[in-house]
């Protein structure tokens, strides 16, 4: 009986320590090549939006920061987590509509994780998701009042799901939906950090909406050993037009 208790305790300890030995993966995504200039948004017929934007609003295709660091690249573990299940975070991912613009532009969420759409504008918007993967439902939510919040989930992994506002046709946001919690979006200097990746061998993929289009992005294999931090940098090339 005593032995059985010891074995059980050891198993519980082993289970609880599973992530204790996990490592962080960090890196930087750098853009190579000269991106095309961003397109200014024309607020013709949208005087209410013009009042919200004293400065020119542009498209957000290539946002390049320090040392050619590329913003809004979705970095995620595309292989290596098959067959494993992970708890879905109870905290929703928030996408806000501020000054007739979605913020953030690219965001990650787990399958089944709530995505909260908030309308911070004194304007009417609609939130129209246009997923391509079977099992992810298209939806179109009216958001008529300031402060209105609606929540939705996606049932299948999909990189990236496009969400748009048809009232203001320049408004887009993208959600990378993954079956594991190991994903990140690069900041304004192209840096990212994926936390608590358990030991093992994985394929890490970096996908940039404009540079990679309908292709899967760039990938590399990484090996996590114990809690030793891993660095994985990527280079994204502007396709020659």
């Amino acid at each position: 009986m005593k032995n059985a208790f010891v074995v059980l305790a050891a198993l519980v300890l082993a289970g609880s320590c599973q992530f204790a030995t996990a490592a962080d993966v960090t890196g930087k995504v750098t853009l190579q090549g000269t991106p095309p200039p961003e397109t200014p948004i024309d607020f013709k017929d949208h005087e209410d939006c013009l009042a919200l934007h004293p400065t020119q609003l542009t498209s957000r295709r290539y946002i390049v920061g320090k040392d050619n660091g590329l913003k809004d690249v979705f970095v995620y573990v595309s292989k290596g987590c098959e067959g494993k299940t992970f708890p879905v975070p109870s905290t929703p991912v928030e996408i806000d509509q501020v000054r007739a613009s979605y913020n953030p532009y690219v965001v990650g969420a787990m399958v089944g994780q709530k995505i909260r759409f908030k309308n911070s504008d004194p304007l009417l918007h609609n939130v129209h998701a246009t997923p391509k993967v079977d099992g992810n439902d298209e939806f179109n939510l009216p958001q008529t009042t300031q402060g209105q919040v609606d929540e939705k989930v996606f049932a299948k992994p999909e990189v990236l799901v496009r969400i748009k506002c048809d009232v203001h046709n320049w408004m887009f946001t993208y959600v990378g939906v993954c079956s594991n919690p190991f994903f990140a979006v690069t900041d304004e200097n192209g840096n990212y950090k994926i936390s608590n990746l358990p030991p093992g061998e994985y394929t890490l993929t970096a996908y940039h909406l404009k540079a990679h289009g309908a292709t899967p992005g760039v990938s590399q294999t990484i090996k996590v050993e114990g809690d030793k931090a891993v660095t994985a940098d990527f280079t994204v090339e502007v396709p020659k037009s």
């Binding site: 095309p36 024309d42 320049w170 309908a214 396709p239």
Partner: peptide, 8 residues
């Protein structure tokens, strides 16, 4: 797809 640089 790179050539598509309109506002939409």
């Amino acid at each position: 797809n790179q050539l598509r640089t309109g506002p939409l």
